[in-house]
Amino acid sequence: MATSPTLRLVKDELYGFAKSKVMLVLWVILPLIAIAGYLLLRGNEKIGMDPDSKMSASVFMSLILSSLSGTVAALMVAVDLVSERQRKVFELFIIRPIRREVIIWSKFIAVFLVVTMACILSMALGIAIDTIRGDAFTSAMAYDTLKGMAQLVSVIGLSAAVGVICGVLARSILVAVLLILYGGQNLTIVPMLPTYLGVLPDQFWVFQAISLILILVLTFLASLAFRRSQF
């Protein structure tokens, strides 16, 4: 039986991304760098850190991941979209009786999932290091970690959505990268604005809600642009 086109493409894209060199960086090199960074920087007075710092590995990991994962997700999906368009990969999908936007959604979902999985892996590694070092992982820490993770997932989703729209609109990889670095990434600040401006007090849910709305709007716009694209 033929499977749903979206499911089939998501499965394929997941497989493709999981085997790509970028994922090697995300799954292996990034956690290694984070661990090395944690071990080297923890309590380093020269860079202004308190020698008696009790910063846990999991907190350090989440700091590194939150600053990197969004950019990685946006760049991954945008570069992939532009490069596949240039190599005329989409043509063989578009000529089939499927909705064009399925291609965009599958890219978004796949990148979102692989980057999220890589982040969960790194966080788990941080928790494991803390446990090995004898730092107890309390329920309060677990709650904070989960909350931080949920926000990180939203950032990854929003960044992937930014990457998707930049990838659909840009005609060259350079333009896509510049659009993301100098324009798109600023969009990821939008969910934090109500908190910064003191408009709404409950920052977690506001952040999550605005992120979700932005993700849906951006991906919808990207799908619309892709549907109107001429190949």
Binding site: Y15, G16, K19, E84, R87, K88, V89, E91, L92
Partner: peptide
Amino acid sequence: ALIGFMPQSCGFQNW
């Protein structure tokens, strides 16, 4: 659903 199309140059995903 009725068409089979072979473009002038066919692109496939690298992996």
